Simulated scan of single mutants.
Amino acid sequence: MSSQEHELVSEVAPAATSSSFYAAMRVLPSAQRDAMYHVYAFCREVDDVADNGGPREGRLAELECYRFDIEQYYLTGRTTHRTRDLAPFITEYGLLKDDFIAVIDGMEMDIVRDIQAPDWSVLDLYCDRAASAVGRLSVRIFGMDEAHGIELSHHLGRALQLTNILRDIDEDAAMGRLYLPREALQDAGISTTDIATILAHPNLDRACRGIAMLTRNYYNQAERVMAHCPRRTARSPRMMATVYRGILEKLIGRGWNAPRADVRRSKRYVLWAVLRDGIF
Protein backbone atom coordinates (compact mmCIF):
# COMPACT_ATOMS: atom_id res chain seq x y z
CA MET A 1 0.00 0.00 0.00
CA SER A 2 1.35 3.42 -0.94
CA SER A 3 1.87 6.25 1.55
CA GLN A 4 -1.10 8.05 -0.02
CA GLU A 5 -3.30 5.02 0.52
CA HIS A 6 -2.11 4.73 4.13
CA GLU A 7 -3.04 8.37 4.67
CA LEU A 8 -6.48 7.90 3.14
CA VAL A 9 -7.15 4.71 5.08
CA SER A 10 -6.32 6.58 8.28
CA GLU A 11 -8.94 9.17 7.34
CA VAL A 12 -11.73 6.65 6.85
CA ALA A 13 -10.63 4.33 9.69
CA PRO A 14 -11.81 2.87 11.93
CA ALA A 15 -15.20 2.71 10.23
CA ALA A 16 -13.85 1.59 6.87
CA THR A 17 -11.08 -0.72 8.02
CA SER A 18 -13.44 -2.59 10.33
CA SER A 19 -16.06 -3.09 7.63
CA SER A 20 -16.63 -5.74 5.01
CA PHE A 21 -16.74 -2.92 2.48
CA TYR A 22 -13.10 -2.14 3.24
CA ALA A 23 -12.16 -5.75 2.53
CA ALA A 24 -14.09 -5.61 -0.75
CA MET A 25 -12.32 -2.39 -1.72
CA ARG A 26 -8.89 -3.80 -0.93
CA VAL A 27 -9.18 -6.41 -3.69
CA LEU A 28 -9.54 -3.76 -6.40
CA PRO A 29 -6.71 -2.54 -8.64
CA SER A 30 -4.98 0.45 -7.06
CA ALA A 31 -6.63 3.18 -9.19
CA GLN A 32 -10.12 1.85 -8.54
CA ARG A 33 -9.29 1.24 -4.90
CA ASP A 34 -8.21 4.84 -4.44
CA ALA A 35 -11.41 6.08 -6.06
CA MET A 36 -13.55 3.85 -3.84
CA TYR A 37 -11.76 4.99 -0.70
CA HIS A 38 -12.63 8.59 -1.53
CA VAL A 39 -16.25 7.81 -2.38
CA TYR A 40 -16.53 5.76 0.81
CA ALA A 41 -14.98 8.58 2.86
CA PHE A 42 -17.47 11.09 1.45
CA CYS A 43 -20.43 8.81 2.20
CA ARG A 44 -19.15 8.15 5.74
CA GLU A 45 -18.80 11.88 6.40
CA VAL A 46 -22.38 12.51 5.30
CA ASP A 47 -23.61 9.52 7.31
CA ASP A 48 -21.81 10.80 10.41
CA VAL A 49 -23.61 14.12 10.09
CA ALA A 50 -26.91 12.25 10.35
CA ASP A 51 -25.89 9.94 13.20
CA ASN A 52 -23.61 11.98 15.44
CA GLY A 53 -26.36 13.79 17.31
CA GLY A 54 -26.82 17.46 18.03
CA PRO A 55 -29.61 19.86 17.06
CA ARG A 56 -31.44 18.89 13.89
CA GLU A 57 -31.11 22.41 12.49
CA GLY A 58 -27.33 22.29 12.73
CA ARG A 59 -27.07 18.89 11.09
CA LEU A 60 -29.41 19.92 8.29
CA ALA A 61 -27.30 23.02 7.71
CA GLU A 62 -24.15 20.91 7.54
CA LEU A 63 -25.76 18.55 5.02
CA GLU A 64 -26.77 21.58 2.97
CA CYS A 65 -23.09 22.56 2.79
CA TYR A 66 -22.26 19.16 1.28
CA ARG A 67 -25.16 19.49 -1.17
CA PHE A 68 -24.11 23.02 -2.16
CA ASP A 69 -20.47 22.00 -2.67
CA ILE A 70 -21.42 19.06 -4.90
CA GLU A 71 -23.78 21.24 -6.93
CA GLN A 72 -21.13 23.94 -7.32
CA TYR A 73 -18.46 21.49 -8.44
CA TYR A 74 -20.64 20.08 -11.20
CA LEU A 75 -21.78 23.57 -12.20
CA THR A 76 -18.49 25.51 -12.05
CA GLY A 77 -15.69 23.06 -11.32
CA ARG A 78 -14.94 24.90 -8.06
CA THR A 79 -13.84 22.62 -5.22
CA THR A 80 -13.89 22.97 -1.45
CA HIS A 81 -12.39 20.85 1.30
CA ARG A 82 -15.47 18.63 0.97
CA THR A 83 -14.99 17.90 -2.74
CA ARG A 84 -11.32 18.57 -3.51
CA ASP A 85 -10.08 14.99 -3.08
CA LEU A 86 -13.16 13.54 -4.74
CA ALA A 87 -13.06 15.73 -7.85
CA PRO A 88 -10.42 13.82 -9.88
CA PHE A 89 -12.38 10.60 -9.55
CA ILE A 90 -15.67 12.24 -10.50
CA THR A 91 -14.01 13.21 -13.77
CA GLU A 92 -12.11 9.96 -14.34
CA TYR A 93 -15.07 7.64 -13.77
CA GLY A 94 -17.94 9.87 -14.85
CA LEU A 95 -19.61 9.79 -11.43
CA LEU A 96 -23.04 11.41 -11.53
CA LYS A 97 -24.09 14.38 -9.45
CA ASP A 98 -27.57 12.94 -8.88
CA ASP A 99 -26.11 9.94 -7.06
CA PHE A 100 -24.13 12.08 -4.63
CA ILE A 101 -27.19 14.23 -4.03
CA ALA A 102 -29.29 11.11 -3.45
CA VAL A 103 -26.88 9.95 -0.73
CA ILE A 104 -27.20 13.35 0.98
CA ASP A 105 -30.99 13.23 0.61
CA GLY A 106 -31.02 9.79 2.25
CA MET A 107 -29.14 11.07 5.27
CA GLU A 108 -31.47 14.05 5.42
CA MET A 109 -34.38 11.63 5.87
CA ASP A 110 -32.74 10.50 9.13
CA ILE A 111 -32.42 14.08 10.39
CA VAL A 112 -35.73 15.70 9.45
CA ARG A 113 -37.46 13.19 11.73
CA ASP A 114 -36.49 9.88 13.29
CA ILE A 115 -37.77 7.21 10.93
CA GLN A 116 -40.24 5.00 12.78
CA ALA A 117 -42.09 2.15 11.04
CA PRO A 118 -42.25 3.84 7.62
CA ASP A 119 -44.47 2.72 4.77
CA TRP A 120 -42.78 0.31 2.37
CA SER A 121 -42.62 3.05 -0.27
CA VAL A 122 -40.78 5.39 2.10
CA LEU A 123 -38.40 2.63 3.20
CA ASP A 124 -37.69 1.71 -0.42
CA LEU A 125 -36.87 5.35 -1.19
CA TYR A 126 -34.56 5.42 1.83
CA CYS A 127 -32.81 2.23 0.68
CA ASP A 128 -32.36 3.67 -2.80
CA ARG A 129 -30.81 6.86 -1.48
CA ALA A 130 -28.75 5.42 1.36
CA ALA A 131 -27.47 2.30 -0.39
CA SER A 132 -28.36 1.90 -4.07
CA ALA A 133 -27.07 5.39 -4.88
CA VAL A 134 -23.70 4.40 -3.40
CA GLY A 135 -23.88 1.32 -5.59
CA ARG A 136 -24.51 3.43 -8.69
CA LEU A 137 -21.35 5.41 -7.92
CA SER A 138 -19.39 2.24 -7.23
CA VAL A 139 -20.31 0.26 -10.36
CA ARG A 140 -18.95 3.06 -12.54
CA ILE A 141 -15.63 2.70 -10.74
CA PHE A 142 -15.78 -1.10 -11.09
CA GLY A 143 -16.16 -0.65 -14.86
CA MET A 144 -19.54 -2.34 -15.11
CA ASP A 145 -21.74 -1.46 -18.08
CA GLU A 146 -24.53 0.97 -17.28
CA ALA A 147 -27.54 -1.33 -17.65
CA HIS A 148 -26.11 -4.10 -15.47
CA GLY A 149 -24.68 -1.55 -13.05
CA ILE A 150 -27.99 0.17 -12.43
CA GLU A 151 -29.83 -3.13 -12.03
CA LEU A 152 -27.20 -4.52 -9.67
CA SER A 153 -27.23 -1.34 -7.60
CA HIS A 154 -30.99 -1.58 -7.26
CA HIS A 155 -31.02 -5.17 -5.98
CA LEU A 156 -27.77 -5.35 -4.03
CA GLY A 157 -28.19 -1.92 -2.44
CA ARG A 158 -31.57 -2.90 -1.05
CA ALA A 159 -30.28 -6.31 0.04
CA LEU A 160 -27.40 -4.77 1.99
CA GLN A 161 -29.52 -2.02 3.55
CA LEU A 162 -32.30 -4.38 4.61
CA THR A 163 -29.71 -6.74 6.10
CA ASN A 164 -28.35 -3.85 8.15
CA ILE A 165 -31.87 -2.91 9.24
CA LEU A 166 -32.65 -6.47 10.35
CA ARG A 167 -29.31 -6.71 12.17
CA ASP A 168 -29.37 -3.31 13.88
CA ILE A 169 -32.93 -3.00 15.19
CA ASP A 170 -31.80 -2.63 18.81
CA GLU A 171 -29.00 -0.20 17.95
CA ASP A 172 -31.37 1.89 15.83
CA ALA A 173 -33.99 1.86 18.58
CA ALA A 174 -31.46 3.44 20.95
CA MET A 175 -31.42 6.41 18.54
CA GLY A 176 -35.22 6.53 18.40
CA ARG A 177 -35.41 4.88 14.98
CA LEU A 178 -37.25 1.83 13.67
CA TYR A 179 -36.86 1.06 9.96
CA LEU A 180 -39.11 -2.02 9.90
CA PRO A 181 -41.99 -1.19 7.53
CA ARG A 182 -45.43 -0.57 8.99
CA GLU A 183 -47.10 -3.04 6.63
CA ALA A 184 -44.82 -5.89 7.72
CA LEU A 185 -45.57 -5.16 11.37
CA GLN A 186 -49.31 -4.97 10.77
CA ASP A 187 -49.28 -8.21 8.76
CA ALA A 188 -47.68 -9.86 11.79
CA GLY A 189 -50.41 -8.49 14.08
CA ILE A 190 -48.35 -5.66 15.59
CA SER A 191 -50.42 -2.49 15.69
CA THR A 192 -48.59 -0.45 18.32
CA THR A 193 -46.27 2.40 17.34
CA ASP A 194 -44.16 2.27 20.51
CA ILE A 195 -40.68 1.07 19.60
CA ALA A 196 -39.94 -0.66 22.90
CA THR A 197 -43.23 -2.54 22.73
CA ILE A 198 -42.57 -3.56 19.13
CA LEU A 199 -39.10 -4.89 19.92
CA ALA A 200 -40.48 -6.99 22.78
CA HIS A 201 -43.55 -8.19 20.87
CA PRO A 202 -43.81 -11.98 20.43
CA ASN A 203 -44.76 -11.52 16.75
CA LEU A 204 -41.69 -9.46 15.87
CA ASP A 205 -39.93 -12.58 14.64
CA ARG A 206 -42.69 -13.22 12.12
CA ALA A 207 -42.51 -9.65 10.82
CA CYS A 208 -38.73 -9.77 10.45
CA ARG A 209 -38.75 -13.15 8.72
CA GLY A 210 -41.06 -11.77 6.05
CA ILE A 211 -38.60 -8.92 5.43
CA ALA A 212 -35.72 -11.41 5.44
CA MET A 213 -37.37 -13.47 2.68
CA LEU A 214 -37.68 -10.36 0.54
CA THR A 215 -34.03 -9.56 1.28
CA ARG A 216 -33.02 -13.05 0.17
CA ASN A 217 -34.76 -12.41 -3.13
CA TYR A 218 -32.81 -9.19 -3.60
CA TYR A 219 -29.58 -11.18 -3.13
CA ASN A 220 -30.80 -13.76 -5.65
CA GLN A 221 -31.52 -11.03 -8.19
CA ALA A 222 -28.11 -9.46 -7.55
CA GLU A 223 -26.42 -12.82 -8.15
CA ARG A 224 -28.36 -13.19 -11.40
CA VAL A 225 -27.08 -9.81 -12.62
CA MET A 226 -23.49 -10.50 -11.57
CA ALA A 227 -23.54 -13.81 -13.42
CA HIS A 228 -23.82 -11.80 -16.66
CA CYS A 229 -20.99 -9.39 -15.81
CA PRO A 230 -17.26 -9.80 -16.49
CA ARG A 231 -15.66 -11.35 -13.42
CA ARG A 232 -13.30 -8.42 -12.83
CA THR A 233 -16.19 -5.92 -12.64
CA ALA A 234 -18.26 -8.05 -10.25
CA ARG A 235 -15.47 -9.10 -7.88
CA SER A 236 -16.05 -6.48 -5.16
CA PRO A 237 -19.87 -6.50 -5.20
CA ARG A 238 -19.86 -10.31 -5.18
CA MET A 239 -17.67 -10.24 -2.08
CA MET A 240 -20.01 -7.77 -0.37
CA ALA A 241 -23.00 -9.92 -1.29
CA THR A 242 -21.35 -13.09 0.05
CA VAL A 243 -20.43 -11.53 3.38
CA TYR A 244 -23.73 -9.77 3.98
CA ARG A 245 -25.82 -12.70 2.80
CA GLY A 246 -23.94 -14.71 5.41
CA ILE A 247 -25.03 -12.19 8.03
CA LEU A 248 -28.64 -12.45 6.85
CA GLU A 249 -28.57 -16.24 7.13
CA LYS A 250 -27.13 -16.00 10.64
CA LEU A 251 -29.94 -13.61 11.57
CA ILE A 252 -32.55 -15.99 10.18
CA GLY A 253 -31.00 -18.83 12.17
CA ARG A 254 -30.94 -16.74 15.34
CA GLY A 255 -34.39 -15.21 14.95
CA TRP A 256 -35.63 -11.88 16.29
CA ASN A 257 -37.20 -12.86 19.59
CA ALA A 258 -35.85 -10.94 22.57
CA PRO A 259 -33.19 -11.10 23.87
CA ARG A 260 -31.30 -10.95 20.57
CA ALA A 261 -27.64 -11.99 20.43
CA ASP A 262 -25.46 -9.65 18.39
CA VAL A 263 -24.72 -10.85 14.86
CA ARG A 264 -21.78 -9.29 13.04
CA ARG A 265 -19.69 -10.19 10.04
CA SER A 266 -17.45 -13.20 10.38
CA LYS A 267 -13.87 -13.35 9.15
CA ARG A 268 -14.75 -16.80 7.87
CA TYR A 269 -17.29 -15.28 5.47
CA VAL A 270 -14.76 -12.71 4.29
CA LEU A 271 -12.17 -15.44 3.66
CA TRP A 272 -14.76 -17.54 1.83
CA ALA A 273 -15.67 -14.59 -0.37
CA VAL A 274 -12.03 -14.03 -1.26
CA LEU A 275 -11.32 -17.68 -1.99
CA ARG A 276 -14.56 -18.22 -3.92
CA ASP A 277 -13.81 -15.42 -6.29
CA GLY A 278 -10.30 -16.71 -6.94
CA ILE A 279 -8.63 -13.43 -6.01
CA PHE A 280 -5.49 -15.19 -4.92
Rank of each mutant, 00 (worst) to 15 (best):
R254G: 08
V134F: 10
D172F: 11
R268F: 15
F42G: 01
P181I: 01
V46K: 02
T17S: 14
G255D: 04
R276C: 07
G58I: 00
D187T: 10
R238C: 12
L60A: 14
L137K: 11
T193V: 05
F280D: 01
L251P: 07
A261Q: 12
L180N: 01
D194G: 08
V49T: 07
G149S: 07
R268C: 10
A200F: 01
G210L: 05
L28E: 11
H81C: 09
L251D: 13
H81R: 13
W256M: 06
V27N: 07
R84A: 15
R265W: 02
R140M: 11
D114Y: 05
V274K: 13
A207M: 02
A50R: 08
I150T: 13
E92M: 09
I169T: 06
D277A: 05
A200C: 01
S191Y: 13
R232S: 02
M25K: 00
R167W: 13
S236F: 12
L152F: 08
E146C: 03
D99C: 08
V270F: 09
L8V: 02
S10H: 02
R264Y: 11
E11T: 06
R167C: 11
D128F: 12
E57M: 01
L75A: 15
A35T: 04
G176E: 02
A159M: 04
R78S: 13
S132I: 03
I252H: 00
L152G: 07
V243Q: 08
A23V: 09
R140V: 12
L86C: 12
A184R: 09
M175R: 03
R265G: 15
L185D: 01
Y73V: 10
Q186E: 15
I169C: 12
D51W: 08
M144Q: 03
Q221E: 15
H228E: 15
F142V: 03
A207D: 07
W272G: 04
I195L: 03
Y73R: 05
L28N: 05
Q161K: 01
R26P: 00
K97H: 11
V243M: 14
T192N: 11
I279T: 12
I150C: 04
L160S: 03
L95H: 07
I165F: 14
L75M: 12
R265Q: 11
S18V: 00
T233D: 10
T17W: 01
R206N: 03
E171C: 03
W256C: 06
M175S: 11
A196G: 15
G149T: 06
D277W: 05
P55E: 14
Y218P: 01
A16N: 00
S2R: 09
L178K: 00
Y66A: 09
I279C: 06
Q4T: 10
D110F: 13
G255M: 05
P181Y: 07
I252L: 04
A196M: 00
A130C: 13
Y66K: 09
L178I: 01
A35G: 08
L60D: 09
L204C: 10
P202Y: 03
D85R: 15
L152S: 07
W272I: 05
Y126D: 00
S121Q: 14
S2Q: 03
I198M: 10
A173Y: 06
R260K: 14
